[in-house]
């Protein structure tokens, strides 16, 4: 009897060990490209192109980073990216909180049907609107400016509206009822009562909006045109499409582009995960 139990225990332990091993292997496979990126950014080109693959640089060099800051107008690209990012965050926070409030806490005829339209636009492929928007922006002379990448952000985003609404619906009615009876107008209720307690969802929206514009490639590619307005992503892709791409520089640039996002993630992990899980809840 005793031997049997310990045999069972051994088997369970073995199984758990195996499970752990499989997951560990996956985790390694997921992290290895980053290892390559980081070490690669310190490699000289002879190390980088060495066959067979060199795990570590034979000679550490900071030259690649120096090149990023001197050889290309890095700070201009960074500034351009940040202009788009910041305006989108501001636009997303203002518009989606207002819109979400309108859907969550005020009753008006047809509200739920209209909300279904909001949800439906989430699965609309952007290609369907991209070409007419390009033509429209060309006509109003917005192509070659930041405007096509900023202005729409002030008119709500289906997914953010959904997030805001989900959160605001959950706030008990009593909180606003007394203020309403006292005759406070709706905007004051929104601004002074609801917004202060909505910080978690606002943080989630802000972060996701940041991520969207920081990562965006197609938008800048189609609408920006001139080299003066390039974002980091667009600049990186242009450098890559050179006949002889400067790969050392590109890897260092890659590290510089990933790093801020990683730091942000480790500081604000909770809000990142929140946004994603909330999207799944709807199902």
């Amino acid at each position: 009897m005793k031997g049997k139990i310990s045999g069972y225990q051994i088997r369970t332990a073995l199984k758990l060990g195996l499970l752990y091993l499989v997951l560990f292997a996956f985790a390694m496979a997921f992290i290895l490209p980053f290892f390559f990126l980081l070490t690669g950014s310190f490699k000289t080109s002879s190390d980088l192109f060495h066959v067979p693959f060199r795990w570590l640089p034979s000679k550490f060099t900071f030259d690649n980073y120096k090149q990023v800051f001197t050889k290309i107008p890095f700070f201009r690209y960074l500034k351009n990216t940040l202009i788009i990012v910041v305006f989108n965050m501001i636009g997303a926070l203002i518009s989606n909180s207002l819109i979400g409030y309108g859907f969550a806490r005020l009753r008006w005829p047809g509200r739920d049907k209209v909300f279904m339209i909001v949800i439906a636009t989430m699965i609309l492929p952007y290609q369907v609107t991209l070409i007419p928007l390009y033509i429209m922006y060309t006509k109003v002379k917005w192509v070659g400016t930041f405007l096509p990448l900023i202005v729409p952000g002030f008119f709500g985003n289906a997914f953010f509206i959904f997030l805001m609404r989900q959160f605001l619906v959950g706030i008990p009615r009593e909180i606003t009822e007394s203020a309403r009876i006292d005759g406070a107008n709706e905007f004051r209720i929104f601004w002074q009562l609801i917004m202060p307690i909505s910080k978690p969802v606002l943080a989630t929206v802000a972060i996701m909006s940041f991520m969207n514009s920081w990562k965006d490639f197609l938008g800048p590619l189609v609408f920006l045109g001139s080299d003066k307005l390039y974002t980091l992503s667009l600049a990186a892709s242009m450098l890559r499409s050179n006949l002889n791409p400067n790969w050392e520089l590109l890897l260092a640039l890659g590290v510089v582009m990933v790093l801020p996002v990683l730091i942000l993630f480790f500081v604000l992990q909770k809000y990142f995960i929140q946004g994603i899980t909330m999207s799944g809840i709807k199902g």
Binding site: F30, P33, F36, L37, L232
Partner: peptide, 29 residues
């Protein structure tokens, strides 16, 4: 810690991810 690792690639700007994978998939090295 594994959850964090599985999540991290989604944070990478797509363009950087592409540059990385060109190298990951390089035939010789």
């Amino acid at each position: 810690w594994m959850r964090v690792i599985f999540f991290i690639p989604t944070l990478v700007p797509t363009v950087v991810g592409c540059l990385l994978w060109i190298w990951v998939m390089q035939p010789e090295s």
